[in-house]
Amino acid sequence: MDPHTNNKTDIQAYKKLCAISFDDGAAGNAPTDPSMRILKALIKNKMTATFFYVSDWTKNAGGIEEVKFAYKNGMEVANHSISHPYLSKLDTNEIREQWEQCNTELRNIISAEPSHIMRPPYLDVNENVLSALCDIPLISCAIDTRDWDNATTEQIVNTIKKAAQDGSLEGAIVLCHETYASTAAAMEEVLPWLALNGYKNVNISDMAKAHGNALANGQLNTHI
C-alpha cells in the first residue's frame, strides 16, 4: 500500500496545514544523523514533509538509504540540483541539466518519479533560470528559520511557534535544512507542539492539493 496515497486522505481532516521542508540532503541514515532524527520525528507525529535532495550528495550508501527510507515513509522526494550551484551563473543548458540529472538519479533510487518541483540552491533565480525551468514549479519559502545562519534550536522553535500563533504559518512553506543538529532538536520539540495546536505538517504538493491550488510553473512559490 502506497503511504503517499494514504496520507492525502488523512490531510483532509485538518484545517491548519503547514509545509516545513528540508534542503541539502542526503545527510545519511545513521540513527544520530540529523536527517534521520527529523524523519523519525515526522513519522512519530504522523506528519510528512518535502525533502529537497542534491543528487551528488546521495551517492554514498548512507545517502541512498536515507532517500529510500524517506520515500518509503511517505515523504516527498524532490529536486535540489546536481551539485548545489548558483543557477543564475549557469547558461540555459546547464540549468536544465541540473534539473534533469538530479531527477534521473533520484528516480533511480526510489524507483518512481520524484516530485515535479525544485528548490533552487540558495533560492537563487533570475530571468534565465525562470525561462530554463518554465515548466517546473520552483519552491522558495514564506518563513525562513535561518538554521543555515546558525539559528539555535530555541530560535528555530520560536520562529515556527510565533508564526503559528499569529496565523502566518497556515499554508506557509517553511525553509529548514536536514544537516543541522539544531534543526533536528527543533523538530523533535516543535512537531508535537504543532500537533497539540491543531496543525499538521505535510509535504508541499499535498498541501497545494488540499487547498485546491496549483503550484505555478516557472515561478517562485512561497505560500499555498
Rank of each mutant, 00 (worst) to 15 (best):
M1V: 14
P3W: 07
H4A: 13
H4I: 09
H4V: 07
N7F: 07
K8S: 09
T9Y: 15
D10S: 07
I11L: 10
A13Y: 13
Y14L: 08
A19V: 00
S21F: 09
F22G: 15
D23M: 04
D23Y: 11
G25W: 05
N29D: 06
A30S: 13
T32C: 14
T32K: 12
D33F: 09
D33H: 15
I38C: 01
I38K: 06
L42I: 00
I43K: 14
K44T: 06
M47H: 01
T48K: 15
A49M: 04
Y53I: 08
W57V: 12
K59P: 06
A61Y: 10
I64R: 12
E66Y: 13
V67L: 08
F69Y: 06
F69P: 14
A70H: 10
Y71W: 14
G74K: 06
M75C: 15
N79E: 00
H80L: 01
I82G: 00
H84F: 04
S88V: 03
K89A: 15
L90T: 06
D91W: 03
E94R: 05
E94Y: 02
R96N: 02
E100I: 08
E100R: 09
C102F: 14
N108L: 12
N108M: 12
P114F: 00
I117D: 02
M118C: 04
N126P: 00
L130I: 04
S131Q: 14
L133E: 01
D135K: 10
D135V: 07
P137R: 00
S140W: 13
C141I: 06
D147H: 06
D147I: 12
D147P: 07
W148H: 10
D149V: 11
N150H: 11
T152E: 00
E154W: 09
V157R: 06
T159I: 10
I160Y: 05
K161L: 12
A163G: 15
D166T: 00
G167M: 02
E170G: 06
I173N: 03
V174A: 13
V174E: 12
H177Y: 09
T179H: 12
A181Q: 11
S182Q: 10
M187R: 07
M187C: 08
E188K: 13
L191I: 09
L191P: 04
L191D: 02
K200L: 05
N201M: 10
N203F: 11
N203C: 12
N203Q: 11
I204A: 04
A208Y: 04
A210E: 01
G218L: 03
Q219M: 12
N221L: 11
T222Y: 07
H223D: 11
